[in-house]
Nucleic acid binder design. Structure first.
Lengths: 144, 144
DNA sequence: GTACAACCTCAAGTATGGTTGAGGTAAAGC
DNA sequence: GCTTTACCTCAACCATACTTGAGGTTGTAC
């Protein structure tokens, strides 16, 4: 029933290494308070933060950006439901966007498998400069 | 109608930096032959390889692994349709798998937004150790 | 035949996301 | 009260994926 977690407990519950927790703290993504003996103690909400971090990383979002998102949470009071909801919704949109993107990529790839685009004349995946000759084409147009 | 591309031409068509092309060649992901004056010349199929590389990277596959996949292509003859198809199908499956994964993640997140899991007692995303206390839980069970 | 862009190699540097190790302190069990 | 495990800081190291720069060569255009 302890209100606080030690770094080891957080590591176990989150599946992250202690060194990673230190690292995230150094980067300002999570916070801790200290005991008299200078040991870290974490509020329970750190687990939510870590989950947000993980999801963000899975989306390929750099830690700095994830940190910026987390920084919108209140520092003074424990985050309320609405705070988490707002963040989750943002992540949710990013997930949606990424799923859409990857589905498009998958469909292109499917097309390319079927189309016999060995000729390399028409396939948008293989031959991206056909239509967008300038501005650094590549599969970029698909991927970003 | 030139059979071969210079490194600059490949860079422009692929949208990649010349330095990246050198880098990929050093890592064995692409190949070139040389002019009498030691300048690189590329066969047209290098563009396909680069597309495969890009898609793989978008999937978060490390270059070494992408290289391994590309290494299954023939070195001696220009790759045939079937060769590309095989690779594309592998990539396609990975895409499918990743889309499925992300959809699940999205659904979990949706659930978490609605469920008011502030209590942190039941949410699988926030409180992953509820059910898998051991073996390094975290959102890992969801993400991998 | 000469200028200038594009090319060459190789070493070093950059950014991200951590891990590892040394040297020392805190806290929990007995 | 002592031992053992967990914790502390800080600097250095690692891997991935490239970019940058120095110093020199090639190839094309005029």
């Amino acid at each position: 029933m302890g209100r606080d977690f030690t770094v080891g407990e957080v590591a176990q519950r989150s599946g992250l290494a202690v060194s990673a927790l230190h690292f995230y703290e150094a980067k300002g993504l999570i916070r801790s308070h200290r005991t008299g003996g200078n040991q870290r103690r974490y509020d329970r909400d750190v687990l939510r933060r870590l989950s947000i971090i993980r999801v963000g990383q899975e989306l390929g979002i750099p830690l700095a950006e994830i940190g910026a998102a987390l920084a919108t949470l209140p520092h003074d009071r424990p985050p309320a439901l609405a705070d988490w909801q707002q963040l989750s919704e943002g992540w949710h949109s990013q997930l949606e966007a990424r799923i859409t993107l990857m589905s498009r990529l998958r469909d292109e790839l499917t097309g390319c498998i079927g189309c016999g685009c060995l000729s390399m004349q028409h396939c948008p995946l293989i031959n991206p400069d056909d239509k967008l000759a300038n501005d650094g084409s590549g599969p970029r147009q698909l991927l970003r």
